[in-house]
Design a protein around this nucleic acid. Structure first.
Lengths: 227, 227
DNA sequence: TAGATTGTTAATCGATTAACAATC
DNA sequence: TAGATTGTTAATCGATTAACAATC
């Protein structure tokens, strides 16, 4: 446990108060780049070189990493394998989390058939829908259950993550149900904001927002050229 | 054109230098909330009330909006209809942009069948894939073309946005092709970073990163409780 | 040892918040 | 007019960058 995350000080003081949102968004990016380095057979990297690759500054990388622990070695740099393992640990890749998909529409089906869960150590254990035609069917070997049986299912199975790919209008009540049933995280693909909950983390995707940002950028391009 | 975007000063000086990324991410959020207000029949809102709704500060909202122009009225607040129209204009909702989907896998198909484009004023005009089995078929009334004919198609049709929903390994070369063919924006659903291009805006979704951030948050929950 | 590169503190930069005069 | 609320400037806060001593 030593030299590991969250335990830089001796006391029982909360040592991981607020990771800034920016650091949080960079963590998976570090994960990706380190994996790439590993795949390329590169086992040693300096903050300077990694910074160049990622279009960051060396300072920023060292600051980011040092927030979680001392993973490097003066005069040497970082051991890619070790650093990757640490980042994986921080991101909970080894936690064997379980997930279910709520709403088997086009997007839910696409998610079910993708390897996004598997490749990050997450076990997709079930799908839920309310449609008679879907209930009982299978997608990629995962059974589609009646959403009415959600609570019963979650009594028997530990579920960490619920993927919300249902109609926007059902998002908020469903979030409440999931909270009561004891889910730990909601991955929200609807365009509805989920009110803050005490013990459930929510990650919003907001694809529509992302598309609109792109449109904004495109619009700016032209206005730039015109001036 | 007066009182509109980008023209606060008289000279031909670039008046829209760098919209901070944070403002940019908030714009579609304003769009969503204003639409909600309109739908609810609310035609007048103060920065204070809107701030409460959106969990921002009134100052921030006024700063954000004032970056683009003076949309409010002292003593009154903002006219929701007018403000919504302005934000729509800024985001290019009325620009009648066109889009194509590159890669008709599960996700590509899901996107094609969704109303995400239509609801934001974007016209999805074609799908592309390399699979013999898919070429010539239709999804939601949109034809699937041979990816080999991409350049020919784009000579005949103006394409603003390309949605990248193909295999990660093909993402970078495809981005280059799209650039040469004259696309203005790439909406990237692969987990591969697209190298910066001169005249193409790129918006990355990185679903995997989003999922990992959620896992991180979940992990923190427990570590918080333990302390 | 000398060179390299980290971990960490201090300086800078940018974004958010507060304050208030302008004005509807 | 009096009250409300904006637009905008100034103050604060937080994140990024720079610098450098520690040390491998």
């Amino acid at each position: 446990m030593s030299n590991s995350t969250y335990d830089k000080n001796e006391m029982g003081v909360q040592n991981n108060p607020v990771v800034s949102r920016q650091v949080k968004t960079r963590l998976p990016r570090y994960y990706r780049y380190l994996k790439e380095l590993l795949d390329a057979g590169i086992y040693r990297i300096s903050s300077g070189k990694l910074a160049k690759m990622m279009a960051l500054t060396a300072s920023q990388i060292r600051q980011d990493l040092n927030y979680f622990g001392c993973f490097g070695q003066q005069g040497y740099g970082y051991n890619v394998k070790y650093l990757f393992a640490q980042i994986s640990e921080i991101l909970g890749v080894n936690d064997k989390l379980t997930a279910v998909i709520i709403g088997v529409g086009n997007l839910g089906r696409a998610m079910a058939q993708s390897n996004i869960f598997l490749s990050r150590g997450i076990n997709l254990i079930a799908l839920f829908d309310k449609s008679e035609e879907l209930i009982g069917k299978e997608i990629s070997g995962k059974c589609i259950y009646d959403i009415e049986n959600l609570e019963a299912f979650m009594k028997d199975h530990h579920v960490d993550v619920a993927v919300l790919t249902l109609t926007s209008s059902q998002a908020q009540p469903m979030a409440k149900r999931l909270e009561s049933a004891g889910v730990r995280g909601i991955w929200n693909f609807t365009n509805v904001e989920i009110p803050k909950m005490k013990s459930v983390s929510v990650m919003n995707v907001y694809m529509g927002d992302s598309l609109m940002q792109l449109c904004f950028d495109i619009r700016q391009q032209t206005s730039d050229e015109n001036e």
